[in-house]
Simulated assay, not measured.
Amino acid sequence: MVALESSGFHSNGYSLIRKILKDKEIDPTKDYGFGRPLVDLLLEPTRIYCHVVYPLIEKGLVKALSHVRGGGIVENTLRVTMGRGVKLFKEKIKTQEFMKFIIKEGNVSEEEAMRVFNMGVGMVITTNNEDRLLEELKNQNLDYDFYLVGKVV
């Protein structure tokens, strides 16, 4: 399972995010060291992956796709396994710093964060040829990260 980096929370957990901002009196117009105001990061449009994924489908490299939105990374990856399980490599997930800030400020447990948020993963591609898939993604010269994030068990 290969992760494509998200552009932000996408449509994940905004009710919880609004509650955290309100309860902790976090000013979303401040930068907090991220190089941009928090509000800009929170309102970043959802990244569209079709131009990346279609060539991979045409080459027969895609077994399943999980667009990680509502339900977080856990539920969305489980949906495509047809009853099989998923082993997520949690230590490899590259969560953006502003997401970590929201999670920490809101005192959100790891379990809840994994269930509610995409954790920085916008799309997961399930394949049976990870080396070739990773090479094809590398050849696309993407302006965002991709990496091995788990496997179907």
Score class of each variant (00 low, 15 high):
35 G>E: 11
99 M>W: 02
144 Y>W: 14
54 Y>E: 05
42 L>K: 05
72 G>P: 04
131 D>T: 09
101 F>A: 06
95 T>M: 08
132 R>H: 04
131 D>F: 13
79 R>C: 10
5 E>F: 02
87 K>R: 14
26 I>P: 01
88 L>P: 02
3 A>R: 10
2 V>N: 03
15 S>E: 12
148 L>S: 13
57 I>N: 05
92 K>T: 10
7 S>V: 06
92 K>C: 05
38 L>V: 08
63 K>V: 12
100 K>S: 12
53 V>E: 12
42 L>T: 12
4 L>D: 00
149 V>R: 07
35 G>S: 09
49 Y>I: 13
110 E>H: 04
122 G>Y: 06
130 E>V: 14
101 F>T: 13
92 K>R: 15
138 K>M: 09
8 G>Q: 09
12 N>K: 02
47 R>H: 14
75 E>D: 08
94 K>Y: 10
22 K>V: 06
53 V>Q: 11
72 G>A: 11
1 M>F: 07
96 Q>A: 08
5 E>A: 09
89 F>S: 07
108 V>D: 00
90 K>S: 04
69 R>I: 15
13 G>P: 06
60 G>N: 11
38 L>W: 02
130 E>A: 12
33 G>E: 04
6 S>D: 02
7 S>Q: 00
110 E>A: 03
44 E>M: 14
115 R>M: 01
21 L>R: 08
121 V>A: 04
46 T>H: 13
134 L>Y: 03
111 E>L: 06
122 G>T: 00
149 V>K: 07
102 I>P: 10
112 E>F: 00
74 V>G: 00
89 F>G: 05
20 I>Y: 06
44 E>D: 11
61 L>T: 11
125 I>D: 13
29 T>V: 01
136 E>Y: 10
63 K>F: 08
15 S>H: 06
137 L>R: 03
90 K>V: 09
100 K>W: 01
130 E>N: 05
59 K>W: 08
95 T>W: 01
30 K>E: 13
34 F>P: 00
138 K>I: 08
47 R>E: 00
91 E>I: 00
133 L>C: 15
60 G>W: 01
55 P>D: 08
142 L>I: 05
109 S>Q: 01
95 T>K: 02
13 G>N: 08
143 D>K: 15
40 D>I: 02
59 K>D: 13
64 A>R: 11
30 K>A: 13
19 K>R: 15
8 G>S: 13
89 F>P: 04
131 D>C: 07
41 L>M: 03
108 V>Y: 01
100 K>T: 03
37 P>E: 12
82 M>I: 01
22 K>W: 07
116 V>W: 00
89 F>W: 06
124 V>G: 04
16 L>C: 10
146 F>M: 11
130 E>Q: 14
142 L>D: 09
36 R>Q: 01
11 S>L: 06
33 G>K: 11
33 G>I: 09
73 I>D: 08
142 L>N: 11
140 Q>L: 12
102 I>D: 02
116 V>H: 08
64 A>D: 07
53 V>K: 11
33 G>A: 02
61 L>M: 11
66 S>Q: 03
73 I>F: 07
55 P>F: 12
85 G>K: 15
130 E>C: 09
53 V>F: 03
146 F>V: 07
117 F>D: 05
133 L>I: 14
13 G>L: 01
68 V>E: 00
60 G>S: 07
59 K>A: 13
107 N>P: 05
28 P>C: 02
116 V>S: 05
2 V>C: 10
3 A>C: 15
107 N>S: 04
91 E>G: 15
119 M>G: 05
92 K>E: 15
47 R>T: 12
41 L>S: 09
